[in-house]
Amino acid sequence: MNRTLVTGGTRGIGAATALRLARDGHDLVLGYTRDDRAAEETRLAVEDAGAHCVLVRTDLTEPEGVDRLFECAGDLTGVVNNAGATLHLGPLAETPPDVVAATVDLNLTAALLVARAAVRALGTSYGGSGGVLVNVSSGAATLGSPGEYVQYAAAKAGVDALTVGLAQEVAGEGIRVVGVAPGIVRTTIHADAGEPGRVERVGPLVPLGRAGEPHEVADAISWLMSDEASYVTGTTLRVAGGR
């Protein structure tokens, strides 16, 4: 039986991924930091899909929070390293230093700590049975996001480097490390950063002419975690409508 941990697993792309994996036969452990109502709604949806679900509320920007999450998770076969946020919209010169630091802490440092813990949970030399780590990056990592959130793009570029390097480092541990890079997707990340209408503004500029939906990213993650992708590691799949 597959047992997968999804960080940021109760809203947006994380919630869609949890539901898709539940339908694929995974039991779920969902990490989150706030919004108990959304967490409970996601848990019920996952259980309605036939999976067992554990919720763990914790702060991944604290090393102790990462440790607690994995302690609660138990034995795992996969990890989706998804938690992240843009936190702010605007030019870098107009972004407060504490926001820059918080963005890097959440989107890169926490992702590194989750990846570290995932290797210790999955790696055969640590007593694990191997598995898959999916790092959720962003199309911003290669576009740079000028005028919007350069600091977020830089952090996500670090996540792409993490995927490449760690995949080679842990191939002998029975772990595949892969990434997915969403483009503009219809989630609350935009409203949370201060622009609720960003999807409507940016979506039509994508070559496919629209924003993506969370389930479209979840479908890519599902494939990357499946045996159909058994020879895929060290690469990031772009799910960005051609942008």
Rank of each mutant, 00 (worst) to 15 (best):
Y126Q: 09
A141M: 14
R198C: 12
D160T: 10
G203R: 00
G197N: 13
L112E: 08
A211N: 13
S145V: 07
G147R: 04
A218E: 02
T77S: 14
S138V: 07
P91G: 08
E216D: 05
A181C: 08
A115F: 00
P96A: 08
I189H: 04
G165Q: 00
V119N: 01
G179P: 13
L92S: 14
G84C: 02
R210V: 07
A171H: 14
E216L: 06
A211K: 05
L112T: 06
L205M: 14
L208W: 14
A155F: 06
V217W: 00
G74T: 02
E94W: 05
L92V: 15
H88R: 15
G128W: 03
I189S: 06
G131P: 06
A193F: 08
P214M: 06
V150G: 15
I184H: 05
A191R: 05
A121N: 01
A93Y: 11
T86Q: 15
G197Q: 11
R116C: 05
A155D: 01
A155C: 12
A121R: 05
P182Y: 00
D160M: 11
N135H: 03
R176C: 04
A140D: 04
K156D: 10
A181I: 03
V206D: 12
A115N: 02
N82E: 06
V217C: 10
